[in-house]
Amino acid sequence: MSTILIFLVMLAMIFWMQQQQKKQARKAEEERSQLTKGDEVVTIGGMYAIVDEVDLANKKIVLDVDGVYLTFELTAIKRVVAKANIPSATSPSTDSSEAVDLTNQEKTEE
């Protein structure tokens, strides 16, 4: 009886782990499909770059790395570091990088 219980617990754990992996894969795919020009991303190789062009139909992305334009498969994107700063007319930007710039300006003025 205990052998059956252990077997059932193992099956439940395997099922749960597979569901978590599927959830992560769906989230990553959703992030990739929402990429726009100007977003900062990290590739699976660890390279930080800015998105220049996204071709969802062919699943390709062109990244700008310090003026060098590289074409990758869309799946080469590991994660999105920062979304593009597109100023909105309805709400002020609350980007933390702007706050850092302001504090640096204040220090230089003193």
Rank of each mutant, 00 (worst) to 15 (best):
93 S>V: 09
65 V>W: 00
55 D>A: 05
107 K>M: 09
39 D>V: 03
96 S>F: 05
97 S>T: 05
23 K>H: 06
79 R>L: 03
99 A>T: 13
18 Q>E: 14
24 Q>N: 13
105 Q>H: 11
66 D>T: 12
1 M>T: 10
110 E>D: 11
58 N>P: 00
87 P>V: 02
92 P>L: 04
6 I>D: 14
92 P>R: 05
26 R>M: 09
54 V>G: 01
5 L>R: 14
2 S>Q: 08
31 E>N: 15
77 I>D: 05
16 W>S: 15
27 K>C: 01
39 D>A: 12
35 L>T: 00
7 F>T: 14
109 E>K: 15
104 N>M: 09
101 D>F: 08
90 T>V: 09
47 M>S: 08
17 M>Y: 08
72 F>V: 02
83 K>T: 08
70 L>H: 09
39 D>M: 02
30 E>P: 01
4 I>H: 07
9 V>D: 06
41 V>F: 06
6 I>K: 14
106 E>C: 03
30 E>C: 04
18 Q>A: 10
24 Q>H: 06
102 L>V: 02
23 K>M: 01
2 S>E: 13
94 T>W: 02
70 L>E: 14
96 S>G: 02
39 D>H: 03
46 G>Y: 02
97 S>E: 06
66 D>R: 13
45 G>C: 00
52 D>C: 01
11 L>Y: 04
70 L>C: 12
73 E>Q: 12
20 Q>G: 00
96 S>K: 15
84 A>C: 05
50 I>T: 15
2 S>H: 02
76 A>G: 01
99 A>N: 09
59 K>V: 07
85 N>Q: 10
32 R>E: 11
48 Y>R: 11
57 A>V: 15
73 E>A: 13
29 E>M: 11
64 D>E: 02
5 L>K: 15
29 E>H: 12
93 S>M: 06
53 E>S: 09
91 S>A: 11
62 V>H: 04
110 E>F: 12
21 Q>I: 04
87 P>R: 00
29 E>S: 07
95 D>M: 01
60 K>W: 03
1 M>A: 10
15 F>Y: 13
55 D>C: 04
4 I>W: 03
58 N>K: 10
43 T>Q: 01
109 E>H: 13
85 N>S: 07
20 Q>V: 06
31 E>S: 15
18 Q>V: 11
35 L>R: 03
93 S>I: 12
70 L>R: 08
45 G>K: 09
40 E>V: 14
88 S>N: 14
63 L>V: 04
12 A>W: 08
26 R>S: 10
45 G>S: 12
3 T>L: 13
38 G>K: 01
78 K>W: 10
25 A>L: 13
76 A>K: 11
75 T>W: 00
58 N>F: 03
29 E>G: 00
27 K>D: 10
64 D>C: 11
26 R>C: 06
97 S>W: 12
97 S>N: 06
